[in-house]
Nucleic acid binder design. Structure first.
Lengths: 111, 111
DNA sequence: CTTTTTTTGTAAGATATTCTTACTGTAACA
DNA sequence: TGTTACAGTAAGAATATCTTACAAAAAAAG
């Protein structure tokens, strides 16, 4: 009976991951709140998906809970697509000027 | 040439990356705002580091600007230049054959 | 260079969110 | 039952954000 994250908003899904991460790290809401210098109800509201989480807070939560920041942003993991990396490294062989030109061309070309 | 992000707050550094990413994607503030269904001054305030960016917004910005969400959260994207990453992502959309042609064109282009 | 247009910055009041504090709910356990 | 530990929630105060309009700056045109 896997809990489906479908039909949940991004905020709710992020909330779930934050709660999961906190529990995984063995911290109570109050402990997390103290360590991050925020109020405990704030943690409660965030984990309920009722309060937004800022980018900075995501960084802090990730650090405290020892999880990858990008996982909190609903990415599968923190890794970049290998084929993308390959393409990027190929591009590195070219001069900066040529790359700029390529980018301009790409912006114009149809897919 | 400074470009030193030292002594900047996380918010300011995120702001810089957001602006850099927008410019790299060739979008005006107004275009970005329209595509994200927010007001243009909001983009301005965010890029000035005066307004927080929510986790959800980071996801949307990353998608629109074609950058890695974790890079917006100040992770270092595997030490590859952001403009390279952008080009690589764009390149992925094209057929292998077309990419070879593009690179051939690049080799001919004057510096 | 001067003028015009485009793009971005910013002000101010209205609106909305978040914070703070205190109280409530719930589960575990003696 | 009563107690403890932890999490949820309510309400007003404090902040932040949004909206609209105008101003500044930058870019383009003449």
């Amino acid at each position: 009976m896997d809990s489906k994250e479908y039909e949940l908003s991004d905020r709710e899904r992020i909330a779930k991951r934050l709660k999961e991460a906190r529990l995984q790290s063995g911290l109570k809401q109050e402990q997390a709140a103290n360590l991050l210098n925020i109020q405990r109800p704030t943690i409660s509201e965030i984990e309920a998906g009722r309060r937004k989480v800022s980018a900075e807070e995501i960084i802090q939560f990730a650090d405290l809970y020892k999880v990858n920041p990008s996982w909190l942003l609903l990415e599968d993991d923190g890794n970049i697509d290998p084929s993308l990396m390959f393409a990027a490294r190929e591009l590195e062989k070219y001069k900066q000027e040529d790359i700029k030109k390529l980018i301009d061309i790409l912006k114009i070309l149809p897919k």
